[in-house]
């Protein structure tokens, strides 16, 4: 393993593994969210389970570390790659056939995802787990920190959050369409046949993630528009 992580492929391996971890987390979070659409109680039970309990706190720390590693290495790689590209750039560039837009803009997309994440932490985490960690029983909105369902309802009744979250999720979609198959490529689990398959799988996963997250946002937004109808 000597010097693995100082090599270009080693750095990419870190991106790949941390990315894979984050994808798994997304899938977990997504499933959890879906509960909110069907039953506020079920969702709140999960929220309680993931409150300031020792396992949830460790989970949160690991997750934060995952995000941090993915983000820091993205910065390192981007800087190194800019240097490798050289000082003088082409006066004229063109689109290469078959090359996805997302693949060339992963850093920008990732940055949007991180900004969205900060917003999300402010909207939810700071009003839930953080409140518990601080030993309080009520958040700034006067809600119980385990009443996640009410928090969702409150947040997505405001249209600008709906718009911001949809932009965030769209960026995530683009990021995943490249990132998902790219992680297989980086660890070497790919070949001529699986190349197109992993790319297809990436589109499916990205779309499922987008739809399921967006579903929660939109369902709660529409509920806020017509509180009695649905």
């Amino acid at each position: 393993m000597s010097n693995l992580f100082t090599s270009s492929i080693g750095r990419k391996l870190i991106m790949s593994v941390s990315g894979a971890f984050l994808v798994l987390f997304l899938l977990f979070h997504m499933s959890m969210n879906l509960a909110a659409v069907f039953s506020a109680d079920a969702y709140n039970a999960i929220c309680e389970f993931l409150g300031a309990n020792w396992y949830a706190l460790i989970g949160t720390l690991v997750l934060a570390a995952g995000v941090a590693v993915h983000f820091i290495y993205a910065i390192i790689l981007t800087l190194r790659n800019r240097k490798a590209r050289g000082v003088i750039r082409y006066a004229e560039t063109a689109h290469e056939q078959g090359v996805s837009w997302a693949s060339k803009n992963m850093f920008v997309l990732g940055l949007i995802v991180v900004l969205g994440l900060l917003l999300h932490l402010f909207n939810f985490w700071s009003k839930m787990q953080l409140v518990e960690i601080l030993g309080q029983h009520e958040n700034s909105l006067g809600l119980s920190p385990t009443d996640g369902a009410a928090l969702i309802q409150y947040t997505f009744s405001q249209w600008y959050y709906v718009v911001l979250y949809l932009i965030w999720l769209a960026a995530l979609w683009f990021h995943l369409t490249h990132g998902f198959w790219s992680m297989f490529q980086t660890v070497g689990w790919n070949n001529q046949i699986w190349l197109s398959r992993t790319k297809c799988l990436a589109n499916i996963v990205a779309t499922v993630v987008f739809l399921c997250f967006a579903l929660v946002v939109l369902v709660f937004f529409f509920r806020s528009l017509c509180p009695y109808a649905c």
Binding site: I9, E96, S103
Partner: peptide, 10 residues
Amino acid sequence: GFGNCTNTGA
């Protein structure tokens, strides 16, 4: 001094 591959496929 070559860069790191980001699998763009270009």
